[in-house]
Design a protein around this nucleic acid. Sequence first.
DNA 1: AGCACGCCGACT
DNA 2: GTCGGCGTGCTC
Length: 820
Amino acid sequence: MKKIAQVIVNIPTRNIDKAFSYIIPDHYAYIDIGWRVIVPFGQRTVEGFIINISDISERDETALKPITDILDDFAWFGNHMLKTAEWLAEYYLTSLAESYRMFIPGKAGVKTQELYKIADSVSEVQLAELKEASKDNDNKDNFKIIEHIYKKGPLKLSELRKEFRHTISDSSLEDIIKSLLRQKILCKHSKIYKSGLPRLTTVYSLAVDAATAINTINATSKRKPAQLRLIEELLKYNSLDSSQLRQLSITLDTVKRLVKLGLIHTKQVQIIRDSYADREFSAPKLKPTQDQEQVLGQIIPAILEKKFKSFLLRGVTGSGKTQVYIEAVRTARNLGRQAIVLVPEIALTSQIVSRFKAAFNNDVVVIHSRLSLGERYDAWQRLRCNQAGIVIGARSAIFTPADNLGLIVIDEEHEFTYKQEEAPRYHAKEVALTRAKFSEAVVILGSATPSVETYFQALQGEHSLVCLTRRIDSVPLPPVTVVDMRNELAQGRRGVISPAMQDMLSETFSKGEQAVILLNRRGYSTFIMCRECGHVIKCHHCDIAMVYHAANTSLRCHYCQERQAIPDCCPVCGSRYIRYFGTGTQKVEETLTQLFPQAKIARMDQDTTSGKTSHEKILSDFAKGSYDILLGTQMVAKGHDIKNVTAVGIISADTALNLPDFRAAERTFSLITQAAGRAGRGNRPGKVVLQTYNPEHFGILSASTHDYETFFRSEIKLREQLDYPPFTQLINICVLSKDNTEADSQAKAIVAELKCTLRGLNHTSIIGPFPAPISKKKDVYRINILLKTRQLSEVRNRLSELKLHTRKGIIIDVDPLNVL
DNA sequence: AGCACGCCGACT
DNA sequence: GTCGGCGTGCTC
């Protein structure tokens, strides 16, 4: 009896949001839920994922198309992966295809190639007629193309372009092809092939024993030195692949002759593509400290139990959270279960990677954005087939197809990079918790400064709270000196670097130690303003001030990368008094060079880290002592553990404090704490100087005393008063349009719809519409509508019925992290 | 997303 | 009268 498969077609569109039914043909009767298949869809052939199987009815037999092919020879999606994908689509209001697709490498498992061929209906006679017609006609080109395709068979557009590049222009070639398609002389023929297939290589080995082989070769009349040498090498190495043969300078021809004689076996073996495989990793193997043992004493039994449980591991900076992760992972691996370790950004956390590689060698697979599709496919396949058991990667690694998941670690749980800012707008922590529930795994959320939401959940008992309160070897946290920049100004000191910070730096250098300086702004000056009329120079395409970059003396927009020349006078009032305001990393670099001419400065921000490994290069050079100062944006505050860093300077702690975002205080607190935590991780005490215009702000105060608890208590009160998360949940609906008034009217219409749909729901409010804080980005106007609710699932259900997410020009962000 | 179907303006 | 614009709707 034939079966019907419910298939999600992998097409990147928001308005198909359901499964389609296909007949499973007899020769694929064995395929099941979770398999990736190829199906006909409209005129095309696309990839699909089977999410259900049911019995056939008589009506189906004729109405449905059959599955054409399969992509793998196993079910790609395990059961809990399917459930997680389903949850993802529902929770974040995205299409099913978009959601399931997260679990495959790349966007699609198949690629299509459009070829042009002569339509089947065109006969020889017709061709002859066309040839005749082209003689006295001025469209000779048409026939030239037809003739060429007739001779060569189906061709790609690019091949046709190449052939006629001297005689027919590209645009007229396309026009001719269009018209031939219309006349049904040509037709499209799409070739579909699977992408991301395993790469195979042929391996050769002896098929008979050595004596037989040598005798057989010698039995032929002539001397065969090359063949004999091949046998010799095969005896030595057992088997050889083509690259080894090349190294031994044995030609493929020699091998083929022996294969023909039946003396050598060939075998296809998969090779793992990994351009990073031969990098060396070294890290000390450490024994857990007493504190770590105590924490592990709570985590390990949970892992052994093979039941879902989540932990919040709050450990001060430098307390050795990584060691806890390693031991927890070891426990899961000993049970034969797999582990996913998420880090905020793989480039900034090479130290964690080294530690894991040193502890687990090839059992670790590192996923990062630089991997090619093939490499990613192989990495995932190794986990899929249980050849490796540990994956380390940034947020998307949460979708690794590990079927036997026992542990998920999220390091620096509070980091905003765990939220994806494009569809599906998921938060890796939510996905991790859901995935872990479905697969009965343990989750460890680690941070020195947990997000307010997570800590609140832990206090409510949703996560078990475990703490590391002391740094390794009980090194004290560095004392923080707060410099009130208003006082500095009052005393006539207008420099970017206060005397206190200057003193700290010179003392540090005199001892041969290193400093990290954090400034949350790149560029030279952050904005340019006319002193007479107050006009600020903004980007033409975005509603944001242009930033002056000294390197190429131009103004740049940090949102769309557009450049502008620096005007001589104000474009509004014509005044020549225009001034640069604010301070960026470039300006600080300049100031530091003046103050400390002998100091070597490494600047690390988006402008200096464009290359692939430039992050790591700068960090490792700094760690080696090639620089005295590491100056940069927030990326200098994270992850690294360099013993010789004893001083940390925070130039302006409040830049993030004044953003129109209810999480501004939290961001500021955690950034300062993380930055301060870079100081004094070795055996020498550290020191921090913090410059601010808001020294009395509770976020700054508690950060300066490394006091998370106090910060949390103040912040949670504010959140409760203002009814913000974690007391409510938010959904942001952003209306996009190139036309401002259109965006406005659409937003108003949506608010009206929402009011109607959400009528009668308690603890639910609609805020807005209001222009997004950055109201224009790349020429697109953005208007926000914010929903605040204590009944997220009900609101989500009703939104889902409205089908808002299938409309174009609307972005729905569930649990948004910023509404900028 | 593609691609067909379908309804209105500018041309041989 | 036709060709061709792209607005709407469907794809098992």
